[in-house]
Simulated assay, not measured.
Amino acid sequence: MIARLRGQLLDKRPPTVVVEAAGVGYEVDTPLSTLESLPEIGAEVTLHTHLSVRDDGHALFGFRSRSERDLFRRLIRVSGVGPKLALALLSGVDGEELVRCVRDDDPKRLTQVPGVGRKTAERLVVELRDRLEQELAVLPGKPAAPAEGEAAPAGGDALEEAVEGLVALGYKQPEAARMARAVAEPGLGCEALIRRALQRAAPRGG
């Protein structure tokens, strides 16, 4: 099991980053909350990781903190929730809000995440209630988001990469393109575009 990865950040293409450690480039899928906390390409990063082993291959997932990784591991233990859906949940609903949904018995908010239907959302709230006892008292920390005017990552257009990131999180291509274009502004980086698109997709009030 790979539990921790430290090395040079080589690439960021949401939701995937590449980290080089000891001469090996590791492709790591991360939630948007972790992507927003990462430094510029070329800097050293440390990720708390979870290795998923399946018949069709291995996948490595990385998180800014152990508490976020632990929350991911609790999610994938819920019936019907795999790593990809858990990643989408942590990108569409940050750790604090997810815990709030469980505490307040509010599955409706979770249904705004692509791939989460009403029954899955209700099952998440029920099954996580007992597993999140500690998180209900001590919520995972949330780092400050980067400035929205930050430049797009090297190696591609921010709008195009934002669309790809939304597709990877479960949205259909036409919907992802519409969501990204609706919030696009000159100078916005990829992560900021995705964050704005997800916030805009969230329900207002209630």
Rank of each mutant, 00 (worst) to 15 (best):
Ile2Arg: 08
Ala3Ser: 13
Ala3Gln: 13
Leu5Glu: 06
Gln8Leu: 05
Gln8Ile: 14
Leu10Glu: 00
Asp11Asn: 00
Asp11Gly: 00
Arg13Leu: 14
Arg13Ala: 15
Val19Glu: 00
Glu20Cys: 00
Glu20Asp: 04
Glu20Ile: 01
Ala21His: 10
Tyr26Glu: 00
Val28Trp: 02
Asp29Tyr: 15
Asp29Ala: 15
Asp29Leu: 15
Pro31Arg: 02
Pro31Asp: 06
Leu32Ser: 06
Ser33Gln: 12
Ser33Asn: 08
Leu35Gln: 05
Leu35His: 05
Glu36Val: 11
Glu36Thr: 08
Pro39Cys: 05
Pro39Gly: 05
Glu40Pro: 09
Gly42Ala: 01
Ala43Ser: 15
Glu44Trp: 07
Val45Gly: 04
Leu47Thr: 02
Leu47Val: 06
Thr49Ala: 00
His50Ala: 06
His50Lys: 01
His50Ile: 01
Val53Cys: 14
Gly57Cys: 05
Gly57Glu: 09
His58Gly: 08
Ala59Leu: 12
Leu60Thr: 09
Leu60Arg: 06
Leu60Met: 08
Phe61Arg: 07
Phe61Cys: 08
Phe63Pro: 12
Ser65Glu: 04
Arg66Tyr: 10
Ser67Asn: 11
Ser67Leu: 14
Glu68Asp: 15
Glu68Tyr: 14
Arg69Gly: 12
Arg69Trp: 11
Asp70Met: 03
Phe72Cys: 02
Arg73Tyr: 10
Leu75Thr: 09
Ile76Met: 12
Arg77Asp: 14
Arg77Asn: 13
Ser79Cys: 10
Gly82Lys: 06
Pro83Phe: 04
Lys84Gln: 15
Leu85Arg: 12
Ala86Thr: 10
Ala86Cys: 14
Leu87Phe: 11
Ala88Gln: 03
Ala88Asn: 06
Ser91Trp: 01
Gly92Ser: 08
Gly95Thr: 12
Glu96Leu: 08
Glu96Gly: 14
Glu97Cys: 03
Cys101Leu: 03
Val102Met: 03
Asp105Thr: 01
Pro107Gln: 02
Pro107Val: 00
Lys108Pro: 15
Lys108Arg: 09
Arg109Asn: 08
Leu110Gly: 10
Val113Ala: 07
Gly117Asp: 07
Lys119Glu: 09
Lys119Ser: 14
Lys119Trp: 07
Arg123Cys: 03
Val126Ile: 15
Val126Trp: 05
Glu127Thr: 00
Leu128Gly: 04
Leu128Pro: 09
Arg131Asn: 07
Arg131Phe: 03
Leu132Gln: 06
Glu133Ile: 14
Gln134Met: 15
Glu135Asn: 05
Leu136Gln: 14
Leu139Glu: 09
Pro140Trp: 01
Pro140Cys: 00
Pro140Gln: 00
Gly141Ile: 13
Pro143Met: 01
Ala144Gln: 15
Ala144Trp: 13
Ala147Val: 09
Gly149Met: 04
Glu150Trp: 13
Ala151Lys: 15
Ala152Asn: 11
Ala152Ile: 11
Ala152Glu: 12
Pro153Lys: 02
Ala154Ile: 04
Ala154Thr: 11
Gly155Ile: 03
Glu161Lys: 14
Ala162Ile: 05
Val163Ile: 13
Leu166Cys: 10
Leu166Arg: 02
Val167Cys: 12
Ala168Met: 11
Ala168Asn: 13
Gly170His: 04
Gly170Trp: 04
Lys172Asp: 13
Gln173His: 12
Ala176Met: 01
Ala176Cys: 04
Ala177Val: 10
Arg178Tyr: 01
Met179His: 09
Gly187Cys: 10
Leu188Gln: 03
Glu191Lys: 05
Arg196Lys: 14
Leu198Pro: 08
Leu198Arg: 01
Gln199Ile: 12
Gln199Thr: 10
Arg200Glu: 11
Ala201Trp: 07
Gly206Asn: 13
